[in-house]
Design a protein around this nucleic acid. Structure first.
Length: 369
DNA sequence: CAGCAGGGGGCGG
DNA sequence: CGCCCCCTGCTGA
């Protein structure tokens, strides 16, 4: 003040800020990443995701591409809807029945306030009155030694949503519900509708307290080290068009699924703590070695390290092939037949379709979306 | 039989 | 090296 400093304060800054954020999310403006869950794509802002989750923060840090697509498998779209609301709005109403699943997902994704350790008890309360204990409290501390928690169940592990035969050996029946079964269609709004049930609702709020990032994130776990694939290249040669549409679907970040001898998902046993198994360290910085990985590496040992898919055990001979392969996980089919509704992921396969099914000479026309 | 997807070759920057 | 195209084996209807 001595110099006549003035303090300018924007009184409604927070409200305005959140409102704008809400609108941006609704319109998908400026979104620079996409979360794919059960076939649904949620355009999101890295800034928001990173702010609310160290996990996403690390994923983005390791993802060179500008518009990565993070494919989460074993995450229900309704949970994702709720979590996005939570991250963007600071709170969300969820059905009691969905709470356990939501928290599990939140923990796996390390959503602050829901999964990351916090000093304060969370303000987790439900419309009714008691807090539901069916599931672990929202903010629970997670240690590497997951001894305390039951890990168990189906870890909400992020993995690819698209089913593909490429799945490795012990493929497990992921709990993925088909999108068809889920009412949710868009990203946002659906939440509100779905959770409108009065009684069993729980309101989960995000605390302002910043979480102490207790190094949990970057512990030796390196777990997510691999969350990202290099994939940013051009997966999307054909699909990269819309702004919020990621060009590269492939950058899925999760470890995949399957590889695990013995278990459904790699991180099953480890619980969420090992959630992102390091399994995918493919092209990641070497720094992150899977040392601690519980057996995950087993699945990878055999393959060619160079162009190994982070979502499954497949190893490709080149980055191009890897990019192409990743599309099998995203389920993206940019090429559509003009004569019928058939769509393919590859131009050539569409060509074959046109030739064999519609009798189109060879290179006739096929659209790519 | 049709479609998917891995492997590989050719071509251009 | 990356992209495009094609071949070919596998799988499901």
């Amino acid at each position: 003040m001595e110099d006549g400093l003035l303090s300018l304060k924007w009184n409604n800054h927070k409200i305005t800020f959140f409102e704008i954020l809400r609108v941006l999310r609704e319109k998908a403006n400026y979104t620079d990443a996409t979360i794919a869950v059960e076939g649904k794509f949620y355009p999101v802002h890295k800034l928001v995701m990173s702010t609310c989750s160290e996990y996403f923060s690390e994923i983005f840090e390791r993802t060179p591409c500008k518009s990565p697509v993070i494919v989460l498998k074993d995450v229900r779209s309704q949970d994702m809807d709720a979590l996005l609301d939570y991250m963007y709005l600071g709170e969300v109403n969820v059905n009691q029945n969905d709470l356990a699943s939501l928290l599990k997902t939140a923990e796996c994704l390390r959503i602050k306030g829901l999964a990351v350790p916090d000093e304060d008890p969370t303000k987790f309360r439900k419309g009714q009155s008691d807090d539901r204990r069916e599931s672990p409290p929202p903010k629970r501390r997670r240690h590497e030694d997951s001894s305390s928690q039951p890990l168990s169940q189906r870890p909400v592990s992020p993995t690819i949503s698209a089913s593909s035969k490429t799945t490795p050996p012990s493929r497990t029946p992921p709990l993925q519900h088909q999108t068809s079964s889920l009412p949710v269609s868009q990203s946002q709004d659906s939440v509100h509708d779905s959770i409108v049930d009065p009684p069993p609702m729980v309101k989960v709020e995000m605390e302002e307290a910043d979480d102490p990032d207790d190094g949990y994130s970057r512990r030796d776990n390196s777990y997510d080290g691999g969350s990202v694939n290099e994939g940013d290249g051009d997966f999307g040669t054909e699909l990269s068009k819309s702004e919020h549409d990621p060009d590269n679907y492939g950058s899925g970040s999760f470890p995949g699924p399957s590889i695990q001898p013995g278990g459904d998902l790699p991180w099953d046993e480890g619980d969420s703590s090992s959630f992102p198994p390091e399994g995918f360290s493919g092209d990641l910085p070497a720094g992150q070695q899977p040392q601690g990985a519980e057996g995950l590496e087993l699945g990878w040992l055999g393959g060619n390290e160079a162009f190994r898919c982070h979502l499954c055990t497949v190893s490709c001979g080149s980055s191009t092939q890897l990019q192409r392969h990743v599309m099998t996980h995203t389920g993206e089919k940019p090429f559509s037949c003009h004569y019928c509704s058939h769509r393919t992921a590859r131009k050539y396969n569409l060509k074959i379709h046109l030739r064999d099914v519609h009798g189109v000479p060879i290179d006739r026309r096929f659209a790519r979306y």
